[in-house]
């Protein structure tokens, strides 16, 4: 009985994991194909041509831009939030402002 229960749980989890990973598998699969092979569902031939083309264009620029933007946002929001949260939780301040701020 216990073993049967466990098997059923694992089967259910297996279906959920398959459902979760399916689009990711498919995207990687398509990215590794060139030309008309995109139409094949399972293929054994791989090519990194798409990735080569991507970096021959300005893709590294976009990566740098994204990283720059992300770090800048983090720094600014931390710089604003740390003093505010410190003063709201540790220093004396009117309760009205404290409650209003959290809303």
């Amino acid at each position: 009985m216990r073993i049967l229960e466990k098997t059923l749980i694992y089967i259910a989890l297996g279906i959920i994991i398959a459902w979760t990973l399916m689009p990711i598998y498919w995207t990687i699969n398509v990215s590794l194909k060139a030309g008309l092979e995109v139409y094949e569902v399972f293929s054994t031939r791989f090519s990194i041509e798409n990735y080569v083309r991507l970096f021959r264009e300005d893709f590294h620029r976009y990566l740098i831009n994204t990283a720059y933007l992300a770090s800048l946002t983090t720094v600014i929001s931390l710089a604003l939030a740390i003093p505010a949260s410190y003063s709201l939780s540790k220093l004396p301040i009117s309760d009205k402002l404290r409650r209003g701020f959290l809303v």
Binding site: P83, A84, L91
Partner: peptide
């Protein structure tokens, strides 16, 4: 004095949120 400091610390983020 600490009270006014605490308001100064809250002010920037409060202003941005508003």
């Amino acid at each position: 004095k600490t009270r006014s400091i605490s308001y100064i610390l809250v002010l920037p983020s409060l202003a941005i949120m508003l």
